[in-house]
């Protein structure tokens, strides 16, 4: 289905910058420390994986994509929108799921938390109720509507975090290590959810086997993209590189 969709866009029109995330010579430094250096990329694929050693700049890269981090030099364009000046619009298009679900659930109970982003957008109450219900059913959380979020399992919390992002219907979702804190069963469950999304996704992960069916994988090394290609090309290269 993803392949079909991608094929359709490619056939319908030449690739416009409108439908892509573009990084133009992006450099980012925290104080003195440069963590990304001169990265230029055009991201149009539906499934993009990001791998690399700890501290190689993956999370910084991920945060650039929705304007959580603004580059010290260079430009990031999401569908032609500059993350530096049009951050609000960019964030509506690009959802972000963090590693630690506890840090992104802001309301005490499940349904309230899912509604949070919609409330911020000023969506009318009855529409919020409808969309929240839909999403809760979709992620198997409808039995937990009024449950306190802190009583959910780790996997359920991550699904709640994902539900809270997807209810806002972004066009892309960036995941920063969504399965790192989860056990195998929950990792697979979250992976299935990510696979089933109709949105374009960028997934930063250390779970290499999740990337087998992805369209493209970027390997980061010391703030640069050291390899860029299909999983079949890049993952073995990265594994060999790790020794």
């Amino acid at each position: 289905m993803r392949w079909g969709r991608r094929g359709a866009t490619a056939a319908a029109a030449p690739p416009l910058p409108r439908t892509a995330v573009e990084l133009r010579d992006v450099t980012h430094a925290y104080g003195e420390r440069t963590v990304l250096a001169g990265v230029s990329l055009t991201l149009t694929e539906a499934r993009i994986g990001v791998i690399g050693a700890n501290g190689s700049g993956k999370s910084t890269f991920a945060r650039l994509l929705n304007g959580l981090v603004v580059p010290t030099a260079g430009t990031v364009l999401v569908d032609g929108l500059d993350t530096r000046t049009q951050v609000r619009e960019v964030r509506r298009r690009v959802g972000f799921v963090f590693q630690d679900p506890d840090a992104q659930i802001v309301h005490p109970t499940v349904a309230e938390d899912v509604a949070f982003g919609l409330t911020n957008q000023g969506v009318p109450a009855d529409e919020i109720a409808r969309r929240v219900d839909e999403v809760l059913v979709q992620y198997g959380l409808d039995g937990h509507r009024d449950h306190p979020a802190h009583l959910l399992s780790g996997g359920q919390k991550q699904l709640l975090a994902i539900a809270g992002v997807l209810v806002m219907e972004p066009q892309r979702v960036v995941f920063d290590e969504p399965t790192t804190l989860l056990d195998l069963g929950n990792t697979r469950r979250v992976a299935r959810v990510v696979d089933g999304l109709e949105q374009d996704v960028v997934v930063v992960t250390h779970h290499l086997d999740l990337l087998a069916a992805f369209d493209r994988v970027l390997v980061f090394e010391d703030g640069r993209v050291a390899a860029d290609g299909t999983p079949a090309e890049t993952v073995p290269w990265y594994v060999a590189r790790c020794g």
């Binding site: 945060r63 929705n66 959580l68 609000r88 964030r91 509506r92 959802g95 972000f96 963090f98 630690d100 506890d102 840090a103 992104q104 802001v106 949070f116 982003g117 911020n120 957008q121 000023g122 809270g164 992002v165 806002m168």
Partner: peptide, 19 residues
């Protein structure tokens, strides 16, 4: 403090600023 830092980002990402 770590939790608070991520929480701040999550609030941004989820549009708390729009209010």
């Amino acid at each position: 403090l770590q939790l608070a830092a991520t929480l701040g980002e999550a609030l941004d990402a989820r549009g708390a600023d729009d209010v």
